[in-house]
Design a protein around this nucleic acid. Structure first.
Lengths: 252, 252
DNA sequence: CATAAAATAACCAAAAGTTAACCACTATTT
DNA sequence: AAATAGTGGTTAACTTTTGGTTATTTTATG
């Protein structure tokens, strides 16, 4: 069997069994443990799995149920989330946007002592057991698809609070249209957050570049930190340099 | 067995049995108590469980159990909740207060098609799977003890919405002090709800009569329906008759 | 309040797993 | 024929997990 074939099959096998011991893989694929190790290392590097003591396991986030295989770029998003979370310090008052990337930040800040303002229901639920987190929900109509809350009153609510750092998501960014979002009600809130927050962090994976959707909630130069998984194109780099936007690239 | 596998299975086991002794886990998983302790510590850190003397137990934070053991007067409260819920009709826009009695209404309205405005986090979480329920969360600071949200902005939010029926709780009612509540911020919200709602339902068990706490959020005569479990004293009956307050007594 | 049971924390040693390097062999490719 | 990639075997240093032990503190209960 060719190496790539075996890699594919191991990939499949791990996905089916969720967690597999290396010994089991040795048995099933009838190659040496040395080889299995090498294979597993490659698969882990691709981001879908994690090594555990004595085996491999598929990455899963505790908030989002396993069933949800639909989420694209899970690994990249976790990387971005982790990087962004490293900026959160005890005592911070942060805003956490709704979105699949931002919600992943939960795991990396759940033990910190911070005040979190969020429109993200999932985050509020996940935070219930962690008394070190001071949670402020923006309130509004429950959007089941995104598990977020939206309301025309969110703007006023945000105005009343001081925000230290804001972690925002976007469905597309571009030099021409800035940072965009598909829901106008949400954009209103985000625009307000950008104004109020000392530091604005934008979390976008590389697919979001050169895309835009219905509404623009802020211009690109209003961002202070951009966290993404791949080096953006030169025109973005120039722009960021010019406007003193700090770039964080998680991919190697 | 791999460590993570065991952790997963222990997780599952605890969830199934709600509370488990460490000795039981030692027996079932055939590892030392030392190891079980370490495992349990990890699981507890993840937030889903709590350690109890001699074992582990699931945090009952996110679930609204049908039969609860600990809460006082559970049966009476369920009766009251059921009675109150019988007034909820498809198409209603209702306000649901936080509190152990009102939350019990969930099971009796979860299949109806209604819009629910609430400051009760437990209710929002429980309602997630029921798409027939249109949920509007008031938002605010998460109060972990009562699993409610409170904010100084709640008042303004409520003003923007029309409410059909409001189901309110109280920590004590009396002829002299009216309907009272211990938290001023919450009282503000409740007072506003009373004003906005066409019909106001007050859900109180018989222990709450002749008691009062810090703040009064409305006068007794502003209530339209009173749901309780025992026939109140004559002075209340007279008062209610005079002010045309409808009484519902669930106990026989 | 006294007692027994359990929890906590700290340590140790054995066992199993990991990493990284090196070498030899084989089957392709060039 | 030479170079290369993939594999298996081996080694040595290191880390993780586990069970056992201890002493000390906490909790439950009569």
């Amino acid at each position: 069997m060719l190496k790539v074939e075996r890699l594919d099959e191991i990939n499949e096998y791990i996905k089916n069994n969720v967690t597999v011991s290396l010994d089991e893989l040795v048995k099933v694929f009838d190659v040496s443990k040395n080889t299995i190790r090498r294979d597993v290392n490659e698969l882990v590097k691709s981001g879908e799995f994690s090594k555990i003591y004595g085996g491999v396991s598929v990455n899963r986030s505790t908030i989002i149920p396993y069933k949800d295989r639909s989420i694209q770029n899970q690994a990249a998003k976790q990387q971005i989330a982790k990087q962004a979370a490293s900026y959160v310090e005890d005592g911070d008052i942060i805003f956490l946007d709704s979105g699949t990337t931002t919600v992943e930040m939960f795991h990396f800040i759940k033990h910190k002592k911070v005040t979190v303002i969020t429109n993200n229901m999932e985050f509020v639920i996940a935070a219930l057991p962690f008394e070190n987190l001071n949670i402020f929900s923006t309130g509004g109509m429950l959007e089941r698809k995104t598990k977020s809350l939206t309301s025309i009153h969110n703007k006023e609510v945000i105005r009343g609070y001081n925000i230290n750092k804001a972690f925002l998501a976007s469905s597309g960014i571009s030099l021409k249209n800035g940072v965009t979002n598909s829901l106008p009600v949400e954009s209103d809130l985000k625009a307000c957050v950008v104004e109020k927050s000392d530091d604005v962090f934008l979390l976008v994976d590389h697919h979001k570049f050169d895309k835009y959707s219905l509404t623009t909630y802020c211009r690109l130069e209003q961002i202070d930190h951009l966290v993404t998984d791949k080096q953006p194109a030169n025109q973005y780099l120039d722009f960021m340099k010019k406007h003193n936007i700090k770039l964080m690239v998680t991919g190697k």
